[in-house]
Structures are given as structure tokens and as C-alpha cells.
Nucleic acid binder design. Structure first.
Length: 234
DNA sequence: GCGACAG
DNA sequence: ATCTTGTCGC
């Protein structure tokens, strides 16, 4: 993907928090993503004891969800994991993976929060602004806010509330299985984000874009990353 | 001051 | 996130 600006990541936690305050003003919570033909999933895997990170982006064709491209980038993280500052740890490697991507996905699903974040700038929103592309946050756990338990059936939802405001939606993607927490990332409405998650979740708790990204990230970490129909790197 | 805390 | 086998439940 084309990525114009050079973005700062080498910051102290205090500087990172200040930058988030500036970037959240650029997040847009609306926008018609139009006809989706390519959906991407982004994720990262780590090597046990080291700070080696393996970031990947997997592009799937919509609606059949066939994988059409994979890109990866491995690096040594310079930032520790601090709740609320995840992007400063995974962002650099993810940006490189996107830089190596040839296709232009219509929307990207991230493993983590969108605006359901202490400062309204989870990894999906942050990356959305940097990539200037529609993004969705799909987290396995909440960072802020609370949500009631959605009904047991697939497709049931319950708003993620924070100070009486809806910042996301708990979505049951699979019957009787713990819901995922969806929040708008950038250039997308929450309802559209929820629709996309349900439309791409087929048989598993996690939607296919993130599920495929998970699998590929682990493969890359184990040195089994393909090159055949994908873009490799690292 | 005491917990909570995406991946 | 990662370390890890079998096991209980739908």
C-alpha cells in the first residue's frame, strides 16, 4: 500500500500519550466504505523471550473470503506493552507490512480496539489515520467501558458503554461463545463495522480477516511463511 | 492511594 | 502476546 508520511514512533510513554491526543482529532466516525471487494486483517505475533515481532497483513476477497495476498515484516520492538499504547509497540512493524502490500484493501480489520480506548485512539483508529483508510477494531477483551452480555444467538449485540455513551458493540459472532468487542477505527460508522464483522465471521469467533492474520503471523514467527501467492519480508 | 489494564 | 494436554460441553 501507498503510505505517504513518515510517522513518529520512537517516543517516551508520555510523548506517546500526547501524540494520541493530537491524532484522535483526525479520526472520522462516518463514511460510506462503498462496495467492499477486498478486506484485510492485520495482526502481530511475538517470539517468546525476545522482543521480536512479526507483523502481517492478509487480504481476502469479498464476499468469498479467499486469501489473495499476504505481506509481513519482522522487527525488534523498541516499545514495551503498555495498555493504551499498543500501537507504539506494533505500529512500526505493521506499517512496514502495509508498505510491502501490493493491493489496496477497502477496509482493514485490526486485532484490538478502535475508539473504545482511554483516549479514543486504539490501534485500529491510530493505524486508520496513518494509512488514511477505513479500519475496524475487533478486540477479544475490553480495555475501557462495559457491555451487557449479548443474547446467546449469533448476531446478538450489546452496546459498549462509557459514561453513558456508546463507543462500540459487543458482538456474538458464534452462538454461545464469548462475544468480540467491535469499535469503529477510522472513516467508518459503528453499524457498518458491526455488519462487516458479522459478514466475515464464518464458523469461528474471530472474523476471517483477523483469523487468517493470526494464522499467518504465527507461521511467519515459526519461519513457515509462504512466498507463493504472497509478499514476504523480514 | 488502590485496582484495572487491547496485544 | 507467550508458555502448553487433556478435557468438559454443545
Amino acid at each position: 500500500m501507498e503510505i505517504r508520511d513518515v510517522h513518529a514512533f520512537d517516543l517516551t510513554p508520555a510523548e506517546a500519550i500526547r501524540l494520541q491526543g493530537e491524532l484522535r482529532a483526525r479520526v472520522r466516525l462516518s463514511g460510506d466504505i462503498g462496495e467492499v471487494s477486498l478486506v484485510a486483517g492485520a495482526d502481530a505475533s511475538y517470539t517468546k523471550g525476545s522482543d521480536e515481532i512479526h507483523a502481517v497483513v492478509v487480504v481476502l476477497r469479498y464476499p468469498d473470503l479467499a486469501v489473495v495476498e499476504r505481506a509481513s515484516a519482522s522487527a525488534v520492538t523498541a516499545f514495551p506493552y503498555i495498555p493504551g499504547l499498543l500501537t507504539f509497540r506494533e505500529g512500526p512493524a505493521l506499517i512496514e507490512a502495509f508498505r510491502r502490500l501490493r493491493s489496496e484493501p477497502d477496509v482493514v480489520v485490526f486485532d484490538g480496539q478502535g475508539i473504545a480506548h482511554p483516549r479514543g485512539l486504539g490501534i485500529a483508529s491510530h493505524m486508520g489515520v496513518l494509512l488514511d483508510r477505513p479500519t475496524v477494531g475487533v478486540a477479544k477483551n475490553l480495555l475501557v467501558g462495559t457491555a451487557a452480555e449479548p443474547a446467546a444467538g449469533r448476531g446478538s449485540t450489546a452496546p459498549i458503554l462509557r459514561d453513558g455513551e456508546t463507543i462500540g458493540m459487543a458482538v456474538r459472532t458464534k452462538e454461545r461463545v464469548k462475544p468480540v468487542y467491535v469499535s469503529a477505527g477510522h472513516r467508518i460508522a459503528l453499524s457498518t463495522a458491526v455488519d462487516l464483522v458479522l459478514a466475515t465471521a464464518r464458523g469461528y469467533r474471530l472474523p476471517e480477516p483477523t483469523r487468517q492474520a493470526h494464522l499467518y503471523a504465527n507461521a511467519v514467527r515459526r519461519g513457515e511463511g509462504q512466498t507463493t501467492l504472497s509478499t514476504s519480508g523480514g
